[in-house]
Computed example of a mutant assay.
Amino acid sequence: MTKKKKLTYLFIIIILLAVGIGLWVKHTQTRERTLTIGIYTGSSWDVPSGKPYHMIDYTIKKFKKEHPHTIIKYESGIRREDYRNWLSEKIIEEQMPDLVIVPSHDFNLLASEGAFKNVGPMMSRDKISSNEFYHSALEAGQYKKKQLALPYEANPTLMVMNKTLLSKLKLRSPNENWTPEKFYQTCHKVSHSNSGKKYYGVTSNYNWQDAQLAYGNQLFSKDDNKLQLTSSKAHDGLFINRKFNK
């Protein structure tokens, strides 16, 4: 075989390989894929909602524009109180959906059993910054320093102060450096004022869990889901809560 023929055959082989790779890439890009979603109906906090699937449907519609060859399926009508059993059965049957809505009280248990995939690398790949989320909400989806879930919805707790009442009692309004102890002192002054009228320093909604969070104590450890009530922060939270209830 002459050198010219060898070069010709080599050129043909390269062309065939290039065509084959191109066809394979096109096939993988256009073939249909199925993405399954697990979601329950209703609100996580028992708040009535007229459109429980509105956000999911909107997201699916937007996703389909970018990924037209992806079929998205989700089972609707699963009640929140039945969702844990439904999801557990899917995991046992090895039919867990690709994406699931996980109630916060079930997250640590499922994470400890290895039910979730680390989404941290995917966030880096898609250039999704953690700054796009509230820090505490994002942290709730972490387990053993891995980001296993992203926040879908949140139910924040807000503390509102009565500045008019504080001004009337000649008490200074708090700033961003307000400590739990200063909070207690202000509440004590409000409830024991000499104004001749009974005021409450704080409503009964403020409980021992709020006091724990005020001192930065995480009730359950992220590593092994153990209750943490022996640290100095936990002691401080329990102590100040006892003072509030005297």
Rank of each mutant, 00 (worst) to 15 (best):
96 M>F: 06
96 M>S: 10
97 P>W: 04
98 D>M: 04
99 L>E: 13
100 V>K: 00
103 P>G: 13
103 P>H: 14
104 S>R: 11
104 S>A: 12
105 H>L: 14
106 D>F: 07
106 D>E: 09
106 D>Y: 08
106 D>N: 05
107 F>E: 01
108 N>S: 11
109 L>W: 06
109 L>I: 05
109 L>G: 04
109 L>Y: 06
111 A>N: 04
112 S>K: 12
113 E>K: 15
114 G>Q: 07
115 A>F: 05
116 F>L: 09
116 F>C: 09
117 K>A: 12
118 N>S: 13
120 G>F: 02
121 P>S: 10
123 M>N: 08
123 M>E: 04
124 S>M: 15
127 K>D: 14
128 I>F: 00
128 I>Q: 00
129 S>H: 11
131 N>H: 07
131 N>A: 05
131 N>P: 03
132 E>K: 10
132 E>L: 13
133 F>D: 02
135 H>K: 13
137 A>V: 01
137 A>H: 01
137 A>I: 01
137 A>W: 01
138 L>P: 03
138 L>C: 07
140 A>G: 04
141 G>Y: 00
141 G>M: 00
141 G>W: 00
142 Q>P: 04
142 Q>E: 05
143 Y>F: 08
143 Y>V: 04
147 Q>F: 01
147 Q>T: 02
148 L>H: 00
148 L>R: 00
148 L>D: 01
150 L>N: 01
151 P>S: 08
153 E>I: 09
153 E>P: 06
155 N>W: 09
155 N>E: 10
155 N>H: 12
155 N>I: 10
156 P>K: 06
156 P>D: 11
156 P>Y: 09
157 T>V: 12
158 L>Q: 09
159 M>A: 09
159 M>I: 15
159 M>H: 06
161 M>C: 11
163 K>N: 10
163 K>P: 02
163 K>I: 10
165 L>A: 14
165 L>Y: 07
165 L>P: 01
167 S>Q: 11
168 K>V: 04
169 L>P: 00
170 K>H: 11
